[in-house]
Simulated scan of single mutants.
Amino acid sequence: MAAAATSAVPDQPLKAQAAGQVPFDLSQPPDIEGFTPLTKIRDESFKEKFLRKTKENPFVPIGCLGTAGALLYGLRAFHQGKTRQSQMLMRGRIFAQGFTVVAIIVGIFATALKPKQSR
């Protein structure tokens, strides 16, 4: 019976850890067998990323500017009491929003179909 109780205990004793001690180093990524993480090339600033994305799909910022312009001008016309002009500008805003959504979808498909570049 004593042999059965000792078989559940491993041959080597467990390392005693103090309370709150972590069994691995948090400053380093974990070492996972068979996994090779991709190296991060470099960080880019907001301005650099915005310019890169605008060059990749210039219709999205154009649609956003059109949407914002129609909204602001339509609200101004509404405030001035020009209801017909305001209504037409709100319809234009809806059109600009649709244009922006289509531009985003086309950009996603174009990016997905583009062959991968090795960096």
Rank of each mutant, 00 (worst) to 15 (best):
T54M: 12
G74T: 03
T100H: 02
I94M: 06
K116D: 11
L65T: 07
T6A: 11
K47E: 15
G63R: 00
V101Q: 09
L26K: 12
A16Y: 15
A96F: 07
P23M: 15
A110N: 11
P30H: 03
V9D: 14
L14Y: 15
R84H: 14
K49N: 13
G74C: 05
D25W: 06
R52N: 05
F59R: 03
Q21E: 14
G66F: 03
A96P: 00
A4H: 14
V60M: 08
A68R: 04
V9I: 14
L71W: 09
E44T: 12
S45G: 12
R42I: 10
T6H: 13
L38E: 05
L65E: 08
S86T: 02
K55V: 08
L89M: 09
A5Y: 06
Q117T: 12
P37T: 06
Q97N: 13
Q28V: 07
E56Q: 04
A16H: 12
K114Q: 07
I105M: 06
F50C: 09
R84P: 04
Q87G: 07
S45I: 13
Q80C: 14
A70H: 01
D43E: 11
A19Q: 11
P115W: 04
E44H: 06
F35V: 15
P13S: 15
M88P: 01
Q85V: 08
T111Y: 04
Q117E: 15
G107A: 09
A110S: 06
M90T: 04
K116V: 10
M88F: 05
P37Y: 09
